[in-house]
Nucleic acid binder design. Structure first.
Lengths: 190, 190
DNA sequence: ACCGTAGTACTACAACTGGAGTGGTGTCAA
DNA sequence: TTGACACCACTCCAGTTGTAGTACTACGGT
């Protein structure tokens, strides 16, 4: 019988995200999720039909958790309207994403897994396209300088910057990374 | 006894790269490598002490194969010295990397695996830092416009562009991606 | 020309690990 | 009383590893 307890289901999905980040797609098993969530062996089996199901739901959940909270959005709508302001905001986004390290790493694992799972690919494509569009709209509406390409190019560069920071932190130093954020904003706003 | 046949060892490592890309880190087993390389079961066991050993050697090998060949380097040193020229060159790099799809995906898998394997992290950091530095030096020496930050920022943006192309190709269309390359070069050269 | 040896290819085996799935029992609340 | 769920235990199965053993090939010495 498929269980309906949504609190527990969410807890299991969050546990799955942690497992993905910590152990990789290789380590994502029902058993590992059970252990991470601190529930008895066999529980995850009762909540998800199979691995595919679990991965797909995790894909949706991560994007839910990566969304900025309301306070942050409000914050971004106040204050000055210049390039320095953009740099601060972008740095904030990079820091926020970096701080949800397990989420970001799990998302990368899912991207790779999506290569082999059409259902997962569909889900991720939808969420990510929506996220990019939302960023564009939000930026254009904010009155900050920069056009659509600005936003997308910043998205590209900052994503990889986060990848470097989270996977091989010694390629660039911490200071260099902060400088790169500033530099990227300066040049891409033109 | 550890086998020394270097041709076979290389073939096994290349097979490991294909397995990584196709099956993910989850699927990288000695058996799978044997099968991919078309050699009898147990062969990979004779060539690599353990999974760690195999992964580390794969990390070195990928970067070897991702290097541009001599013809391409020579090509990049001829011709005009302007922004359009840079755009063409960058597009070439993006296409070349994208075309070695399994190599790039395997490298991503390895990056994630490096989170958990210090030995692998060391190897990858060394190679990638060297690659970035080489790109910077090469670019500055070429007389093309753009400074160090230009090169690094292009590196960041183009890497993620390739990630998008290879993992979720429908987020951006093929045309949009080519336009983004041009746009990135235009703005980052400033 | 013959032989011994070292390195390697190939095959097979034996044991182990870890996970999936399922059924059963107890508990709680409507 | 009934339905949903938590918890637990048990079985079955698939996949991997590491190694032992045998056969082949090339090469150097005599």
């Amino acid at each position: 019988m498929v269980r309906q307890n949504t609190a527990r289901r969410t807890a299991l999905i969050d546990a799955a995200i942690e497992v993905l980040a910590a152990e990789g797609a290789r380590g994502l098993t029902f058993r590992a999720v059970d252990a991470q969530a601190g529930v008895p062996t066999g529980t995850a089996s009762n909540y998800f039909a199979n691995r595919d199901d679990l991965l797909t739901q995790a894909g949706g959940r991560i994007y839910e958790r990566l969304q900025p909270d309301a306070a942050e959005v409000a914050d971004s709508r106040s204050g000055a309207r210049d390039g320095d302001r953009v740099a601060v905001l972008i740095q904030g986004v990079v820091d926020r994403v970096s701080s949800f390290k397990s989420g970001y790493l799990a998302l990368l694992e899912l991207r790779l897994e999506a290569t082999r799972r059409p259902a997962l690919r569909t889900v991720l494509t939808k969420h990510i396209r929506a996220d990019v569009d939302a960023n564009i709209r939000h930026h254009l509406a904010s009155g900050l300088p920069g056009d659509e390409d600005t936003v997308v190019l910043l998205y590209l560069a900052m994503n990889w910057l986060v990848v470097e920071r989270l996977t091989l932190p010694d390629v660039f130093g911490e200071d260099e990374m902060r400088r790169l954020v500033t530099s990227a904003v300066e040049r891409l706003l033109a």
